[in-house]
Design a binder for these strands. Structure first.
Lengths: 136, 136
DNA sequence: ATAATTGCAAACACTTTGCACCTGT
DNA sequence: ACAGGTGCAAAGTGTTTGCAATTAT
């Protein structure tokens, strides 16, 4: 199945490139593009977000209140192998911090030795406040 | 606002007492009660689950696929102060393990010192396989 | 008596789908 | 020409709400 390059696709991609660290819902993408004069159908937005998530161009999360899905440009985490480290998520700004240090091994080691628990990173999140947001 | 004790409420509570470690969705509660001959309206189930969550009789989570909310009997974690430790969640059986050991402090300490990140436990989850499910 | 709770149907928000039409290759 | 993408409207999910009827106190 060969991919065509369409206006919808490139407009959506542009939107994420312009907002590399934001996490946005489908309707926010829709409205954002609308504001720039790019009128897409919501269903088209959904279809493209799905596709881009499959292609790992985007990363899909659940919004805090669980009412919807939100997407983030994956390139803002490029180079990261996100299946082998935990993610810290800032409750305030939504930023994702990748816990790629050796301490990760200690955590996995402790959980396995003392709790018989085998960590797998997919879906794991540690919530809190990041460096910037923690100082208020 | 004084609470009345109604059949709906006690049937739902019974259901959770019979399934203390299960995490179930509103419709699973609905169907489970239906099977036992207790016919409630789905809206009533939702309203009671909400109430019981407010009263902290239940704990509300998001299902793995984010499509719905799931509830668990809080008593199965009684005595735990769940706002001060992380939770390990088994990807296979759904069991929640409370990370109440001192290692928790090390995690929080490391994240703060090395990553400027202030952990807060609410909403944090570390996914993986528990002792029982890990051996297959 | 009266305040809380229920059932029902309708409304909601978010997401998905069928299908005819359009576009990129 | 034809596979892939789009718009539109309709359908689907899970959840919430307004309201009249019912039930617990």
């Amino acid at each position: 199945m060969k991919e065509y390059s369409t206006r919808a696709k490139s407009d959506i991609l542009d939107f994420f490139k312009e907002n590399p660290h934001k996490q946005v819902s489908a309707s926010e993408v829709f409205k954002g593009l609308e504001a720039k004069g790019s009128h897409l159908n919501l269903a088209t937005v959904y279809r493209n977000l799905d596709r881009m998530t499959d292609e790992k161009v985007l990363i899909k999360y659940k919004s805090v209140d669980n009412s919807s899905s939100i997407y983030q440009f994956a390139e803002s985490m490029d180079g990261h192998d996100c299946y082998n480290h935990l993610h810290l998520k800032c409750r305030s700004c939504g930023r994702i911090v990748h816990l790629e240090c050796d301490f990760m091994k200690e955590i996995a080691g402790h959980l396995f030795e003392h709790h018989g628990f085998t960590v797998s990173c997919e879906g794991s999140v540690i919530m809190g406040l990041c460096k910037e947001c923690g100082n208020d």
